[in-house]
Simulated assay, not measured.
Amino acid sequence: MISSGPPVPAAVRAANPLDADYRRLLDLCPVLRVRLLADDEPAPSRLQGWYSAAELAGDPEALADSLAGEAARIAPVAAGYGTSPRPHVVASRLLHHYLWSVSVLIAGPWYLARRVPLIGGADLWMHAATGDLALRPRAHVTLAGEDELRAELRAAVVTHVEPLLTAFAAPARRGTRALWGMVTDDLASAIWYLGRMLDATHPAGEAGEAGEAGASAAARAAATVEAVLGGAVHGPAELRAVFTEPAGARSGAAGGEGESCAAAGAATRALRAEEAARPGPSEAAPHPATHEAAAVAAAGAVLPGHTEPLPGAADFRLLRGEDGRAHHTRTRLGCCLYYAIQPGNACLTCPRTADEERLRRL
């Protein structure tokens, strides 16, 4: 496999309305490892293991190298659980990483600034050895009508990922409907994630930009947020460490989706303690003014069902614990195969995970 080369060099970037959106998004989402490129900046080098979305979709060698990189990232984690994921698990995990990441990159500016980026296959790259991304922002769509803009969001995601689904179908051993179900799941998850991270850094009712305290809250929140949303072991070293440290050893960052149940529970309890310390009445259900509640509503409006080729709905619901507190949840349309890496530890949105188990972990 081609080894990792030096980082993509930085350059002075030309003004683009998306620039500020992406700076805010990357500050908000510490798990998203993306380098932004200017129009005149050289593309990341294939010789250093970088492949564009178009290359991943159309070049079997590029896809094979990227799958080998994902297998290498998964291997030490899986070995700790006595497993050796089969090739279709590796392919599903890599596709999940890509779909979730590109969903955040497209839905983020839409959610934060009502701009839908149009990301071409030649403008987004993934590094085979690390799973990191590089993006050259270009055009975007802004419309007055909310329904029309939501349709543009769905179309932008569908247009970008469709060639990749064709390329991943055989190695992931998934049919067309199952693949589009993954897209639906990861788009819903991405919007939900944005709301949770906004709550972590900009609690509802508080003014001002997030400072160091907000960034710290985002790092602490990432483990909880991603455990709730699903599971992934791709990504930078600090994210993979979540899976290799003893359960409960840390409550820090997690990436894509997921971590150990004990660590997730510890992070959740820490966040709940912070919430309880804030002034104001205790709420038995998610406060209607929280960013998470707004994001859940937004995801439901984007994915109401019957928006082919996206086969299902966001379909969020509330679970109420014994303490009366309510938690947003949903059930994925298809399994992300996280349990195949950590047996017996399916993610919290997995069809395999009953509501009773979700509440126990939370």
Rank of each mutant, 00 (worst) to 15 (best):
M1W: 08
S4A: 14
P9K: 03
R13N: 07
Y22D: 05
R23V: 04
L25F: 04
R35M: 04
L36D: 00
P42C: 02
P42F: 03
A43T: 03
A43I: 01
G49N: 02
A53G: 15
G58I: 00
A64D: 07
S66Y: 04
G69T: 01
P87S: 03
P87Y: 06
V90C: 01
A91W: 07
V102C: 11
V104C: 07
Y111E: 05
V116G: 03
G120M: 02
D123N: 13
W125Y: 09
A128I: 02
A129H: 09
E148S: 14
R150H: 03
V157N: 04
L164S: 06
A170G: 08
R177N: 09
L179R: 05
M182R: 12
D186Q: 14
A188Y: 08
A190D: 13
A190N: 11
I191H: 03
M197N: 02
A213G: 15
H234Q: 13
A241T: 07
A247S: 14
A264K: 05
A284E: 11
H291N: 15
H291R: 09
A299K: 02
P304R: 00
E308P: 15
P311F: 05
D315S: 12
F316C: 00
R320E: 15
G334H: 12
Y338A: 13
A340W: 06
Q342F: 12
R361K: 09
